[in-house]
Design a protein around this nucleic acid. Sequence first.
DNA 1: AAATAAGCGAGACGGTACGTCCAGTCTTTCT
DNA 2: AGAAAGACTGGACGTACCGTCTCGCTTATTT
Lengths: 197, 197, 197, 197
Amino acid sequence: MEHEETERRPHTGRRRNEAARRAILDAAVELLGSADEGPVTIDRIAAAAGVGKQTIYRWWPSKGAVLLEALGERAETDVPAPATGSLGGDLAAFVAATFRAAGNPRMAAALRGAMAEAQRDEPAGEVMRAFIARRRQALREVFERADLAPGADVELLIDQVYGVLWYRILVGHAPLGPAQAAELARSVAALALGRQA
Amino acid sequence: MEHEETERRPHTGRRRNEAARRAILDAAVELLGSADEGPVTIDRIAAAAGVGKQTIYRWWPSKGAVLLEALGERAETDVPAPATGSLGGDLAAFVAATFRAAGNPRMAAALRGAMAEAQRDEPAGEVMRAFIARRRQALREVFERADLAPGADVELLIDQVYGVLWYRILVGHAPLGPAQAAELARSVAALALGRQA
Amino acid sequence: MEHEETERRPHTGRRRNEAARRAILDAAVELLGSADEGPVTIDRIAAAAGVGKQTIYRWWPSKGAVLLEALGERAETDVPAPATGSLGGDLAAFVAATFRAAGNPRMAAALRGAMAEAQRDEPAGEVMRAFIARRRQALREVFERADLAPGADVELLIDQVYGVLWYRILVGHAPLGPAQAAELARSVAALALGRQA
Amino acid sequence: MEHEETERRPHTGRRRNEAARRAILDAAVELLGSADEGPVTIDRIAAAAGVGKQTIYRWWPSKGAVLLEALGERAETDVPAPATGSLGGDLAAFVAATFRAAGNPRMAAALRGAMAEAQRDEPAGEVMRAFIARRRQALREVFERADLAPGADVELLIDQVYGVLWYRILVGHAPLGPAQAAELARSVAALALGRQA
DNA sequence: AAATAAGCGAGACGGTACGTCCAGTCTTTCT
DNA sequence: AGAAAGACTGGACGTACCGTCTCGCTTATTT
């Protein structure tokens, strides 16, 4: 945890806050991922980030909000928008990247903790909804590029992709591998295009 | 403990008080549902049930386990197995009943709380998996009565039904009304039968 | 307690099990003595005696009462009344025997626990006062056999013997050896006889 | 973490709240004294002091330690060191003040509870020994000012004063009035000076 | 011999207090 | 003025005992 952060952010007063903000988010993701070492507490995030607790509460309203913002940043970079030219291809690429990111055990643990937090903590719930909305928008754009069957309900299609993903993350009854991603993409593409799965 | 000394002394001492068990489960659902009055604590469940805390901990490993067992019982009675003669009809009936039960604000609050609990508490997670497995089995039987398209993946179909349901319960971005139930049922039936949605 | 309401129904049913009573008292002393293995609880006494808890509560009003009765029996046999012919000799013998009994680490632990119990539990307090009174009476007889100085206050002399003993048992700031016994006996004898210590 | 940076950083962070410390000790004595209203619990001390439980456990190892520290402070002020010029006078004054303080029913109840606590709780026992040692030292100074008989054992004399006191507090078989104090002082002075009582 | 009365070991029960842990806030000191 | 350190209130947690209350069984007395 306490690597030599020596040169930057030695703790001087004044507006040196951006480095602290980064350290907090990084520590949060780090701790969320390594779930075996006990629960993720604010004290532990602060200690890992080399930061006072008050510095966390200055910028985020609650523990859950920190965790979700940390995850949001991560997801953004892990799932780039694909453009293969066909809905089937785009969907396959998108779902595969999403499953790959979420299938990482540390990330899965983080998402589970974040979703649990969002159920209890209203500020965290808000951050979760924003996070979810951004992810849905990314997938929506995939569908909007395509020539969908008449009557296809894009919101339901999005729900079917993310619903299956979250359901599996939270319950853990099925793996999140490439094969599962492909099959889900195929199934949803069939619904979208009005063709046989 | 339970090695087979069967023949002698099958049980000594006072028996488990079934009335207390019922009171605990009922109080748990009751409190989970009325989430606005602060968090659901073991002390409050015990007080509401007129029971000592130890009596709860004697029979359940954690708070979450109590809540989930309570929910499991409730779900069992709220969603009877349908038999309309067609997959479309059965599925429509099943999903409608499920959405109706889960759409009840108290039940939804209870399910959200229980799923959150399951993420943090390993014993609760186990009970949640058992609960989920029972619900999946009920839906599986609906599919197994029908003449599915070759290559239809029943487990994925089940995931799509419950995935969408849980995703909406937990994120709250879409209602759980009869119209939504019907549309989801139609969509999954199309996948199952290999026909156009 | 259950005196003879004689005429009707002299006694039906199973009789009190004397072996159980003995086992309970023995287990109590045993556990009181071995203080290192955690606190002496009713459950542990019952288990050690091979007896149900109810059997203890049928015959004693509280935990403390059991412990004190157990100790009382023990003390009775450990300190026989001496008769050396002189107050100095009798007192020396009596105090020496008392110190020897109370100096046994197991016995000391038992006495400490019993006195603590007596402070919190009224029934135990009563048993303690009875126990104390019997011990005082034994010592009083030693003084009454002697030719005391005029104005010697026997009750105060008794207090000085047992006061020093209990004080040292409870606080543990000084040993309870033969030398200490002899010195205390000499000091009190001097007071009693109105001579120089 | 804590390598020897000794020289710098004498203390960071919020300081111990002295007002809270006082409130806790005062509440403890207050509750100990009014023993009729049920047992003295940590929760009740905390509530009466307007303090979180953790603040108590941060500074004292157990309930008994709190009670004893509270009593120690009280005793210090209740029994000032006398200086009448003679051992008999000093002793009479000291014992009278001590009996008066301990004879107060609230104080007596508090002392009984504290001694009981000290028997069960090792940390409390330690605090009790420190308390006892301070009281003994105060009395020892009375003796050391005087011209004692050769061979007088000061420690035994102290034991005889406090032994009788504690014995009567704990067993309750005799009052703690001025007459009793005077008689005890006279008796111990006689032993100390080697004269007739 | 059957009926009736306890006593018994086992162990679940309602309660109460314990001591621990975290969240989120407040305060002190250092830079 | 802003940050780290860390004490603060509050409140839930899960554990430990107490003393009571059944169970199913055994042992004695009465009919």
